[in-house]
Design a protein around this nucleic acid. Structure first.
Lengths: 327, 327
DNA sequence: CTGAAAGCGCTTACAG
DNA sequence: CTGAAAGCGCTTACAG
């Protein structure tokens, strides 16, 4: 079954040098005579030699791989975060894999296979309660950075969701009308608490202004449910001010309002969260987070840990901002 | 810098057995006395031993990793495809990584780093012209399966997009009105040709029925552009029959129509493609592809190759089906 | 700048 | 069922 691959030895023999020299060439070591280097490179080319990554990793001790674990894979947000992370690791020659954790099986796999994490120089974990979910399965010597969850154990990059909720509250409480919140309901203690933080910030803000929430709708991350909420809201109130803790919930609301012929900023106000592309297309007021920058920061923190510059655990919190549009 | 890790030797010594026995235990070999196994397992537990994956890979020759390359990471479709792939590999104990190729840098990386592909037992590549883009960078002995692109070199799993276009044509030509196509314009020869195939199938179908297309709109994958198209279509025709080669283009159309107070199946007909979740929510007629099944099939083909059951290159084509809804 | 050799931590015939 | 040993293909002091 095993094909005889071309190894560093074959190259060394054919080039008439030692394996150490070949190794230095493929690792771009400066301690090689340019002539030798050129010659070896030619032989490598001719033979189509490709170094075995596992041997390299075994002897060098590092993998030059990092992996980012996402709770799911829903596009835009993750793509931006990843591009921030990549910006840091590309220039260092790392391969950046993605491991979406969208199924129980995938989660089980991380828990049960030490290979998974040990085969990596470092891990970035997005929007997951690492402390409860994964900490015990991750070997102590593997560097980890948590994003969107403020871990007690690992360096963390988070958004100040409470503050985000506050500026949404500051915005909507400028207007007359009844305040509503559409948010996601956590099913388990392990899910992210960002939605709750956004809600708390919102309530804090409006209560300071002597207002209060007419009703909070807690629903699944599901379009249809959001439509139902919109229906309910517009039947309860003739002038609703709606805070959707994610733009996903804001889209169906605006959709419903349009069907009903209701005018934004006249018949209702709406503030979303996340600033997804669709929000700008649909002209929805929302709260924007510096996603790519968060990714980059997380990448830098991880790289520092990989390189062994250890220091105290730290959390970096980014401030979101209000993007006022036509709702 | 290098911490002394616990190795198989340490475990063997402490357990009073040979390293071979420890190896057999961690690999779940049946040729170990149950008592011995239990004892070794206890020692492993106590010491917190975790086998070094690189050493395993170097000596065993396989990595138990597969990676799926996506041209981007836009959620639903890829998640479904991946879950099909995972279904095959989970039970075999493989780690299934994702490598999104959404940036030129990421693409460059695949080209330039042999580690990337060699560190893997097999690769599934989605919606990419492998033959032109990647073939030359992939070592000959790495098993590859192409999805959504009919490769001349690798096993492929594709959707019969031509047929999909035909059934869309069959559907829309049932009605009176002017036929329009909204489709994506390829920027380079390297992009996927699925959209063109869908268009060809559609035209084939309607021409057989003696009809012809009033106008083809070729646009970027962009909501705003699709809105503009909708505007144009409804100003040109009072009874348009619109084929959107992807549901992404169908959403803005329906959105626009609603704003204008136009009734589907009365003022216009609309047929999308892909059957995204939003299509069912918005009640859009569309063409459905068996995505998860395609993933599973691709996974099975890859696994067969990894296991060395070689046979001729083959292409499996799935038939899409019409999902008639309210448009 | 370069070669010979030890070592990385496993797996796997081989012999018992 | 089990141990001793060779081997996987590199990297990296070490000595020159």
């Amino acid at each position: 079954m095993k094909k005889k691959n071309i190894t560093i030895k074959d190259v060394a023999k054919k080039a008439g040098v030692g394996v150490g020299t070949v190794s230095r060439v493929i690792n771009n070591s400066p301690h090689v005579n340019p002539r030798t280097k050129e010659h070896v490179l030619k032989i490598i080319q001719e033979m189509g030699y490709m170094p075995n990554p596992h041997a390299r990793r075994l002897s060098s001790g590092h993998t030059k791989i990092i992996t980012t674990i996402f709770p799911q894979m829903v596009g835009e947000f993750h793509q931006l975060l990843l591009s921030g992370i990549d910006e840091v690791f590309e220039k260092e020659g790392y391969t950046s894999f993605v491991y979406p954790l969208y199924s129980e099986n995938r989660y089980k796999f991380v828990r049960e296979s030490s290979d998974f994490v040990l085969g990596t120089d470092g891990v970035i974990i997005d929007a997951l309660n690492v402390d409860k979910l994964l900490k015990q399965y991750i070997p102590k010597n593997v560097p980890v950075v948590s994003v969107e969850f403020d871990s007690q154990k690992y360096d963390s990059v988070i958004l100040d969701n409470f503050y985000g909720g506050m500026i949404a509250g500051d915005y909507l409480s400028n207007f007359e009308g009844d305040l509503f919140i559409v948010t996601h309901d956590r099913k388990t203690k392990l899910e992210s608490t960002v939605f709750e933080e956004r809600v708390s910030g919102f309530i804090e803000s409006i209560e300071r202004k002597g207002r209060k929430v007419a009703k909070i709708f807690k629903i699944d991350l599901d379009w249809l449910e959001a439509i139902k909420v919109a229906k309910a809201v517009f039947s309860i109130s003739k002038k609703p001010l709606i805070f959707a803790t994610t733009d996903y919930f804001a889209f169906p609301v605006i959709e419903f309002a349009r069907i009903k012929g209701l005018e934004p900023k006249e018949d209702f106000f709406l503030c979303g969260f996340d600033n997804l592309t669709l929000s700008s297309i649909l002209n929805i007021t929302t709260i924007k987070q510096p996603i790519k920058k968060m990714g980059k920061t997380a990448g830098e923190m991880l790289l520092r840990k990989i390189k062994g510059y250890s220091r105290k655990r730290q959390t970096v919190a980014f401030k979101p901002e209000l993007i006022e549009r036509n709702t």
